[in-house]
């Protein structure tokens, strides 16, 4: 795994830079704004101390979602900090924090109107989909999918790596194709009942195409990964991901991130499991539990450990 950790290390500074950038080009009076800890709060920071009475008046605020400017959100109260440099806006109902909110404040300095957009960073949102599919909702350990292939190919580390990488490639390609088919053919022509047939057909097609291309272009790679291609089709995850994409109406980038996370999560699960099973081979286990039964018990313990990720929220 060292290569992956290096990739993450290289990726992080770029990410941090991206989040800091909006702060550098901020407008005059309002220096920072974000969603609060609860989902019905917005926190606003001011450049200098403001008149606390003005800032606490709810009539001075207009808040709406960028996509629905006509629907004004009901503001319950505003709490201004002692030094007058920040305020917390409390709303009557929880906000949809995935959407961009526009906050307009009047009379902050006499007779001015200042307007800012509050949103979670979209890149951060995409990243949270990736991490969600990989760890928090790991398809193997918390959704219990793809188990046949999981137990079949986790005996040795080499097989685990080969299967995981092949699977990741196929799932990303097939999920992207499924997204195109769903958005531009199934939905416009009202053919949603054909979802299962179309998605599984696309998966077969991808597997067959990867098989043919790999055989011609790189026979060495084909010898290493060819055997796993057939198994990909018997993996529930490969059909579950397109169905989830269709249900949630994800856009292209979100679909890509979800399928990539699903593949990466499967690779991670396989690698962890194969590391343990290589050691179990040498352990003294009751004969009736040898092989598959003990593997299930180990997988159960992994599932328990992965429950620990459920509290993780990144952005």
């Amino acid at each position: 795994m060292p290569r992956i950790t290096e990739m993450i290390k290289g990726f992080l500074p770029t990410l941090i830079l991206f989040f800091c950038l909006p702060g550098l080009v901020q407008a005059a009076m309002i220096t920072d704004k974000s969603f609060g800890e609860e989902d019905n709060q917005i926190v606003v920071d001011f450049a200098s101390a403001v008149d606390r009475e003005v800032a606490a008046t709810t009539e001075n605020y207009i808040v709406y979602e960028e996509s629905d400017p006509d629907i004004r959100l009901q503001l319950e109260r505003v709490e201004v900090a002692e030094d007058g440099k920040s305020a917390i806006l409390y709303f009557a109902e929880p906000l949809n924090t995935l959407k961009t909110h526009v906050v307009t404040i009047r009379n902050l300095t006499p007779a001015t109107v200042e307007s800012v957009k509050v949103s979670k960073s979209y890149l951060g949102y995409l990243f949270s989909i990736l991490i969600g599919a990989m760890l928090i909702n790991n398809f193997v350990f918390t959704k219990y999918l793809g188990l046949c292939v999981f137990f079949g190919t986790s005996k040795r580390k080499d097989t685990a790596k080969g299967m995981g990488i092949t699977f990741t490639i196929v799932i990303v390609v097939s999920a992207v194709m499924s997204w195109f088919f769903y958005q531009f053919i199934l939905k416009p022509f009202d053919l949603n009942f054909l979802q299962i047939v179309v998605f599984i057909g696309l998966v077969s097609l991808t597997v067959q195409a990867v098989d043919t291309v790999l055989r011609k272009i790189n026979p060495v790679l084909f010898n290493a990964f060819g055997v796993y291609l057939v198994l990909v089709i018997a993996n529930c995850i490969i059909i579950a991901v397109p169905l989830i994409l269709a249900d949630n109406e994800y856009n292209f980038f979100e679909s890509f991130m979800l399928s990539f996370g699903a593949g990466g999560g499967f690779l991670l699960a396989l690698y962890l499991m194969s590391s343990v099973r290589e050691r179990i081979e040498l352990a003294n286990i009751p004969p009736t539990f040898k092989g598959i039964p003990i593997a299930f018990v180990v997988a159960g313990q992994f599932a328990l450990a992965f429950l620990g990720f459920s509290g993780l929220s990144l952005f």
């Binding site: 219990y144 009751p286 009736t288 003990i294 299930f296 018990v297 599932a303 429950l307």
Partner: peptide, 14 residues
């Protein structure tokens, strides 16, 4: 939910 793994493993052993 996760107990499924344990139950399947134990029943197979049984």
């Amino acid at each position: 939910p996760f107990a499924g793994f344990f139950v399947v493993g134990l029943m197979m052993g049984f």
